[in-house]
């Protein structure tokens, strides 16, 4: 493990939930520069809630979230996104009815026009699939292409941390591979990734480190390959989840 000095995102005993229902009961984890961190846990353990809390969609009731050492607790969603955290939520949230190109430009909303255009050019070069369809309605893309578009859009802002919630859900095996390749390539571009993946084995193989979340708190953490090899984990949890 590297030193804590290059920690990008720290989540410190965070409590949050919906209405009267408390879901996260004090989750603590961190994401460091250029690493891919997997977050695993069963349905309802609080993975998606954690993602939503980090981006401000759910309010932090107690605890603190820091980005580059600065607290972002209580900031608005827009502000958090602009500070460098991008979330790709579960499901394919393209803006259907708008062009692929316009979808991408929205990822850079708030940046100057020159930055926006430069970033668009760069992204389209990186994703030739999207380049071919730049002028098409995003809603007309296939499921996998849409997911790729959403990831590409999230990268338009050059975020420090990319949060991915179930990026492979419902994709064809071929498309899953493409999406995972994109995620793996983020290591080189210096984007840290926090990944929720229902396919635990695939997620752990991709990740550097992993956290296991149970009942709204972190139950275990460690090097991804260690967790993958750990028999206690695979017996109690991986066996069923990995199908």
């Amino acid at each position: 493990m590297t030193e804590p000095a290059d920690t990008i995102l720290e989540i410190d005993s965070v409590v949050s939930g919906y209405g009267e229902l408390e879901i996260l009961h004090g989750a603590t984890l961190d994401v460091r520069a250029g690493e891919i961190v997997a977050l695993i846990g069963s349905n309802g353990a609080g993975k998606t809630s954690l993602m939503k809390t980090i981006t401000g969609l759910l309010k932090v009731r107690s605890g603190d979230i820091r980005l580059h050492g600065q607290s972002i607790t209580g900031a608005s969603v827009e502000a958090i996104v602009r500070k460098g955290i991008s979330l790709v939520p579960e499901g394919r949230h393209v803006f259907a009815g708008m062009k692929v190109e316009d979808n991408l430009l929205l990822g850079a909303y708030g940046l100057s026009k020159s930055e926006r255009d430069a970033k668009l050019k760069e992204t389209l070069e990186r994703f030739p699939l999207l380049q071919e369809r730049a002028k098409q309605d995003a809603g007309s893309l296939s499921g996998g292409q849409q997911q790729l578009l959403v990831v590409a859009r999230a990268l338009m802002r050059s975020p420090s941390v990319l949060l991915l919630d179930e990026p492979s859900l419902g994709l064809s095996p071929l498309m899953v591979e493409t999406v995972f390749e994109v995620i793996a390539s983020l290591r080189q571009s210096g984007v840290s990734v926090l990944l929720v993946e229902q396919n635990v084995v695939a997620g752990l193989e991709l990740a550097d480190r992993a956290y296991v979340i149970e009942n709204g708190a972190i139950a275990r953490s460690g090097i991804a390959s260690d967790l993958l090899a750990d028999p206690t984990l695979s017996n109690s949890f991986l066996g069923s989840a990995a199908q």
Binding site: G17, S42, N43, A45, E214, N215
Partner: peptide
């Protein structure tokens, strides 16, 4: 607040 523990039967099993 009302009961806030297990959200799904699955989660209980893990716990």
């Amino acid at each position: 607040a009302p009961e806030t523990t297990a959200v799904s039967p699955n989660a209980k099993k893990v716990a």
